[in-house]
Design a protein around this nucleic acid. Structure first.
Lengths: 200, 200
DNA sequence: GTTGACATATTACAGCTGACCGGTAAAAGC
DNA sequence: GCTTTTACCGGTCAGCTGTAATATGTCAAC
């Protein structure tokens, strides 16, 4: 057996370097050489782990999605059992908004993902499936909330799901400093409280 | 006097060519040469109207914002006088979402604008000011709606404004085909109806 | 018809890009 | 010790980039 290196770990290291480049200089600057330098590797080394630049970028994007899911899972673990759907949704939304460093990093990767998906068939399929999956999760939570009586049945689950996901539209406002993170949180809570009834 | 050319019109022609490139191939492909070809010009000709690529891109983005404002103005002109704030806001939101070809084009430019703004000081200032200005307009409408009794005074105008603008977060869902344009409209109307009271 | 001002086109150049390839080092099995 | 496999390096190549310099075209005024 030859020299052994944990492939996945190396790829994740490179992916994190790519995140930093994207966050600081933009996806356009995320060339193989730039990412290699950021990761402290030669560009040949990076090519050993990713045959093409696209492969590297796609991996970094999927990895960012996975990390977001992880952060959500951590946040949910701190809730009651069973958690109130409002709290569940709040954790998901907060981790999707660029309110903390980790979330900001993955949020920017996500934005670049979507933009790239608009004119690349492969990435489009991946992004679409990922987004559709996330939307299904939310809709399931909403439907369960109706079943459990947390939500009055005159709400259309599909529409309410779309409105909840639309809250990620606060991202540009926060990123450009038009509103403060606290105001974004206030807006999220206002929406959730209005949805579930201000009292409970 | 030499041969005269309408500079502004030429620049707008080039900007529209850039829009097409961005929509079909992405902002990364919007090089001086590519845009020139799309516009049916030599890349030297484009250079005559825009000294640098950045100048061209910034102009095209500002032009896209202006066109969106124009479409909103047209839409508003078809409303009653004075228009109901709900209808006013609906027109603005509909023109910001990628629901029709024109709006989709400018929406994609807008997305690229924001992403570029995150790591370019000049563009950041421009994008931020533009967004802040748009937000001010919406907040003014919300405050006027409270004054005019269309909105109960227990609404916080700033938060409601942020929630209205957040509806642009439906964009990725529509662009990636996760939801249909009609569903986005339903969501917008649902939010507006809930805000202004379902009856009126 | 010459001049001047501007529009447009051509060409050149330096820099960066992604992809590719040959070479080397190291580690493990035989 | 030899071979095999994996890890990594550094160079090279063609292609595209933005931009500058330069040349040509075009039209109006004089």
């Amino acid at each position: 057996m030859p020299k052994q290196v944990d492939h996945r770990e190396r790829r994740e290291t490179i992916a994190r370097a790519l995140w930093r480049v994207v966050e600081e200089r933009g996806i356009a600057q995320a060339s193989v050489r730039e990412v290699a330098q950021e990761a402290g590797l030669s560009h040949g080394a990076v090519q050993h782990y990713f045959a093409t630049r696209e492969e590297m970028v796609v991996f970094a994007m999927d990895f960012a999605s996975a990390q977001t899911s992880l952060r959500v899972a951590e946040g949910v673990s701190g809730l009651g059992d069973p958690p109130h759907p409002r709290d569940l949704l709040r954790v998901m939304l907060v981790e999707m908004l660029p309110l903390r460093p980790d979330a900001r990093t993955t949020s920017r990767m996500s934005a670049a993902y979507v933009l790239e998906a608009l004119h690349d068939a492969n990435i489009r399929t991946r992004a679409r499936d990922g987004l559709a999956h996330g939307r299904d999760l939310v809709e399931r939570i909403v439907r369960q909330a109706v079943t459990d009586g947390h939500l009055s049945p005159d709400h259309d689950p599909a529409t309410e799901t779309n409105l909840l996901l639309a809250l990620t539209g606060l991202t540009p406002l926060v990123e450009l400093g038009v509103i403060e993170p606290q105001e974004a949180l206030t807006a999220v809570d206002q929406h959730l409280n209005r949805l579930f009834g201000k009292g409970t």
